[in-house]
């Protein structure tokens, strides 16, 4: 299945999800438009656009790649997509993507239990390694980065950075 179809099916799912989630919201009240009016209108509009996209995909079997902008054809600049980068899905890329995403979610969950210093050192180290920095250098850079972040946010900007709630770490004042 092509990427275009993945997107199209995702929008069908989003509009169906929005309709289900807003099922109990009133469309009109005696005071005027209800809390469910706009979300329902938007969900149906999305559905319509997804249908249009699907028809477009069915009608054009092969996607025409539009010309790139050149001095002779500068108008093609208007057709350039915002994210025109080419991505190559490799196995190692997938693993690093998943690990980096997990690290970011884990940081949100562990920041308060483990405290700012410990969790941020782990986050920085993991990010550096997963993005391809050498292991030993990452350790040093992670410690330096956390000290700088603590100085900027904790001292200069006076932000109350969390200390560990988790007992063994809290004992050391982390």
């Amino acid at each position: 299945m092509s990427k275009e179809w993945v997107g199209c099916i995702a929008w069908f799912a989003v509009s169906a999800g929005a309709l289900v989630a807003s099922a109990d919201l009133q469309v009109m009240t005696r005071f005027g438009p209800g809390p469910g009016l706009f979300i329902k209108v938007l969900a149906f509009t999305m559905l319509g656009l997804a249908v249009l996209q699907a028809i477009g995909l069915l009608m054009t079997h092969r996607r025409t790649v539009l010309a790139r902008p050149t001095p002779e054809h500068p108008a093609a600049l208007l057709n350039a997509d915002e994210s025109d980068d080419q991505f190559v899905a490799t196995r190692s890329g997938m693993i690093r993507f998943a690990a980096l995403t997990t690290t970011i979610f884990a940081y949100g969950l562990l920041l308060e239990p483990a405290g700012f210093l410990v969790s941020t050192v782990v986050l920085t180290f993991m990010s550096l390694v997963l993005l391809g920095r050498p292991l030993r250098r990452s350790m040093v850079e992670a410690v330096i980065a956390v000290v700088v972040a603590w100085l900027v946010f904790g001292i200069m900007l006076g932000v109350n950075l969390p200390r560990a709630a988790f007992e063994p770490l809290a004992v050391f004042g982390l």
Partner: peptide, 12 residues
């Protein structure tokens, strides 16, 4: 990759 890691940490 160093710039990327800085962006991750500063954003979060």
């Amino acid at each position: 990759n160093l710039i990327g890691a800085i962006i991750v940490v500063v954003s979060l």
